[in-house]
């Protein structure tokens, strides 16, 4: 059973050369239960990546702490898999080797690595590309590989930072369905950051809305749509009304950013 507790986590980036310090995150409290799919929605620059990096252990909070299964997070580790906003496949490794990276680090035998990697290659629909270099893949394929790479490690929690942000709309929808399909089948605790309202509702069991900088949790909205979900759900009245609510919440925040800018 996985339980993630974000306890009064705040982050201020120190001042630099006459600029005031950046308050990226106000103290944030959030609990994520086992197999929960939580989406975090917020305008650009509100500290979504910062929050996720703190959970991953890549950044330290100025105050507060992150607790995973009773243990305080003090650094990065294989129990928290991360998919980044930018493309971060290792360019010198093939798709299969990229996916097996964490397994090899853990000392899994070569035969087992191959088997596990091939299973995930199949699941993210990259059969036929296992020996390609990242450079030879489209953006969508690269992010699918990155998801497979994180999943192959069997982390307790999967952290995704706008993984589909740079993709075109059609590809993004396909990727959302793929990710949701994997979650529905395998169950996994997921923290998913996005600034796309439809994406947040479609994927999440709960949507956390963050305010403009400094980031705070502004609202939390449960998404009680049935599973398995397909893209058709996006036109149901329940979906549309959720969307309207979130548009209002987000719009207020986006306006704040625009006024300050």
């Amino acid at each position: 059973m996985t339980e993630l507790k974000i306890d009064q986590v705040a982050r201020t980036f120190p001042a630099r050369q006459g600029h005031a310090p950046t308050r990226a995150l106000e103290p944030i409290d959030l609990n994520v239960r086992n197999n929960d799919f939580v989406t975090i929605l917020g305008p650009s620059g509100c500290g979504k990546s910062t929050l996720l990096r703190i959970v991953a252990g890549l950044d330290r909070p100025t105050s507060g702490r992150v607790i995973l299964d009773g243990q305080e997070v003090t650094g990065p580790g294989a129990d928290r898999g991360m998919v980044f906003q930018s493309y971060t496949l290792f360019p010198w490794l093939s798709v299969r080797e990229n996916i097996a990276f964490g397994l090899r680090e853990r000392g899994v035998s070569e035969a087992d690595r191959g088997k596990i990697a091939d299973g995930f290659i199949d699941r993210v629909g990259l059969s036929g590309f296992e020996n390609h270099w990242p450079k030879q893949l489209s953006g969508g394929m690269q992010q699918r590989t990155a998801i497979a790479r994180a999943l192959a490690n069997d982390p307790k929690i999967l952290l995704l930072d706008e993984p589909f942000g740079a993709l075109d709309n059609q590809t993004r929808v396909l990727m959302q369905e793929m990710l949701l399909g994997i979650w529905e089948r395998d169950q996994k605790t997921v923290l998913f950051v996005t600034h796309d309202i439809e994406e947040a509702i479609f994927l999440g069991s709960r949507v956390i809305v963050m305010s403009a900088r400094p980031g705070r949790i502004k609202a939390e909205i449960a998404v009680d749509l049935p599973h398995p979900r397909s893209y058709k759900i996006k036109t149901t009245p329940e979906f549309v009304s959720l969307k309207e609510r979130l548009v209002e919440e987000i719009r207020a925040e986006a306006l704040k950013v625009a006024v300050h800018a």
Partner: peptide
């Protein structure tokens, strides 16, 4: 690239 190093850390690299 720092992001590659970070990715490796989250994959459990020492």
């Amino acid at each position: 690239r720092r992001d590659l190093v970070e990715a490796a850390y989250t994959l459990g690299a020492g």
